[in-house]
Design a protein around this nucleic acid. Structure first.
Lengths: 348, 348
DNA sequence: TCCGATTTGTTCGTATGTATG
DNA sequence: GCATACATACGAACAAATCGG
């Protein structure tokens, strides 16, 4: 630990524990120099850090005063939630669960959406860094790709802000805590289910920019391998947030050719696949079985309704919020990996 | 002008004029020391300032690179959205519409929920006042009651932040702009619809703390009066966010007694009324017709499904967002009052 | 793979300017 | 006016990361 960071930390805890009450002055720079045996530069660096964090206000000729919660714009506890979307698909459910727990505990969550774009994520994170908050729940953006915002997450952590990742997290970044789906297991379950139904030629459509897609693909491979069935690269379609519709139009036929079933990354994709098949007069499930994930309302609004794997997103949200509150209160927390449940419908 | 500020300014204009293009490295600290005749400490102070402003990125062992406009946070492209709820009922739809328009125009919305509590609203507004933003879309909290946060809204306006109210606004506060439902018309339509169905004894359940409730009640009175039917105070139940469930338990029977139809403030209430009636073995719609508002999924999940008045909430959200963007760009905007559409189902 | 030059990060010391009470 | 406090500025040294040879 660097000296100026050590001093800053010492002063932070002093403020937190009331040794330096809000409104009171901190010891003067020279006094800290004498007391801690540091140079004035180092002491000033620590104070500059605290000022940037909004914990103190330095005034020339007067001293450095400790700011209270009110002055720190923390009239109540603030928590930021960052997800890819807000009002669509499964996200309202997820948010409802988080909101429920947080508001019941006196916290006020603020939500932002990245639309799975790292530039949006960057803008949101820099905004968060501007004012102090108690915790962050974040769904990583493009978690399968190197993340240019890792440094911002680290800065948040250095500021002492606990972070809980949901759905996915960055492999290169050591996350403090995460609540994710058992995506590998889900991919395996989906493939095993279709194998057990007698299918041996199973295509897959996966998302390449999110780690969830990689994991579901890994599980799908695992199940095929365990059944002694090799996989053909031609039977897997990788798409990204941006290239989804174009790829489905151009490559779907090639990928499905020769297969009798397809595992789709989620219900949104499954619905698009089903519509494309219907447009060509292909029968579901007799000619092509379709499986999705999330068991969303999307999948119930088409006929036949789509067999899907489901998790209780509200519960997942509650769990993530509870873990964040635990971190804020300083109790150790363990990451969670949540299983999927099969909901069998008419598409298989 | 202080030396470090002068150097920072010199470098800023250098970046702006392209002498130090984005992506390129700035001269090293030692080179600036030699060139400007300053100490390294002073040079570092200037660079620290530029880094804090997001103009450069310093990297140990490498140098200081100039960040492009893409990497640099735009001055303020932030918009705050405040609603009562986020992940429930009709709100995901509403938020989806607003988000769609805002993100398409390069804005990043931040969402907060008040849960219809003025203390939460106060906390959120004071937080907003702390950091700059371009605009606010807000659903007022307890809009039928005197609002203790009116001063905060005025302060926001004095800061030049445009505000768009949705769903309801404070009568005592002159709102710059609002997008609301035609609640008076909706109440009248509901009563007229039931009158035309032959009902003459029509009860009403309204929300007393939101202005929407008052307006729907006014429309209901208007229709009864126009039909030459007086109203009985006993046939109207007023509830608040906090007292809803208790009042439905204690007073519902009294209010419905002698009536053959009931207009409910929204589908959420209508569902509760319907469940209470079913529990007593009362038949719907033969013994009691039920009408709600919002045409939410709630109302479709009970049998008989609830006849309801609907608006396209996503469109309402888009409209509010477009008006806010108009205000931000300085073009004059007019408030909007949106009509309701009847969706007839089996509860009438 | 290692080394060395370069560059920024950290820390010490010292002196002077300027605002506050 | 005076003591005290923070702000600015200079000089020096070593540490840590980066990059090219």
């Amino acid at each position: 630990m660097l000296k100026y960071q050590a001093l800053a930390e010492q002063l932070r805890t002093g403020i937190a524990e009331g040794r330096y009450p809000a409104g009171e002055k901190l010891p003067s720079e020279n006094e800290l120099v004498a007391r801690c045996g540091l140079s004035r530069q180092t002491v000033r660096q620590a104070l500059a850090l605290l000022e940037q964090e909004g914990r103190i206000q330095r005034r020339q000729g007067s001293g450095s005063v400790v700011l209270g919660a009110a002055a720190r714009r923390l009239p109540t506890h603030y928590v930021a939630i960052i997800t890819t979307y807000i009002g669509e698909y499964i996200f309202p459910e997820l948010l409802r669960g988080m909101e429920e727990v947080l508001t019941q505990n006196g916290y006020i969550p603020t939500l932002s959406a990245t639309h799975n774009r790292v530039d949006n994520e960057r803008a949101i994170l820099t905004n968060l860094l501007g004012h102090p908050l108690d915790g962050v729940i974040v769904e990583g953006t493009k978690t399968a790709l190197p993340n240019p915002n890792a440094e911002l997450y680290r800065r948040l952590e250095r500021l002492g802000v606990p972070i809980v990742f949901i759905n996915g997290y960055y492999p290169e970044y050591k996350p403090p805590l995460y609540v994710v789906a058992d995506d590998r297991g889900g991919g395996r379950q989906a493939a095993e289910y279709l194998l057990q139904k007698g299918h041996t030629k199973i295509a897959g459509i996966f998302k390449s920019d999110d780690i969830q897609g990689h994991r579901r693909y890994a599980g799908y491979l695992e199940a095929l391998g365990a059944a002694g069935i090799g996989m053909a690269d031609d039977s897997v379609l990788w798409y990204t947030t941006e290239t989804c519709d174009a790829l489905l139009k151009s490559d779907l036929d090639r990928v499905l050719a020769g297969n009798t079933a397809v595992i789709c990354y989620n219900d949104e994709i499954a619905v698009k696949v089903q519509r494309a098949l219907a447009a060509k007069g292909r029968l579901i499930p007799t000619e092509m079985a379709v499986v999705g994930f999330d068991n969303s309302t999307f999948g119930d609004m088409v006929t036949p309704r789509i067999t899907s794997f489901v998790q209780d997103k509200a519960t997942e949200g509650r769990l993530a919020a509870e873990k964040l509150l635990g971190l804020i209160q300083g109790t150790a927390q363990k990451s969670a990996v949540l299983p999927w449940q099969l909901v069998e419908k008419e598409s298989t």
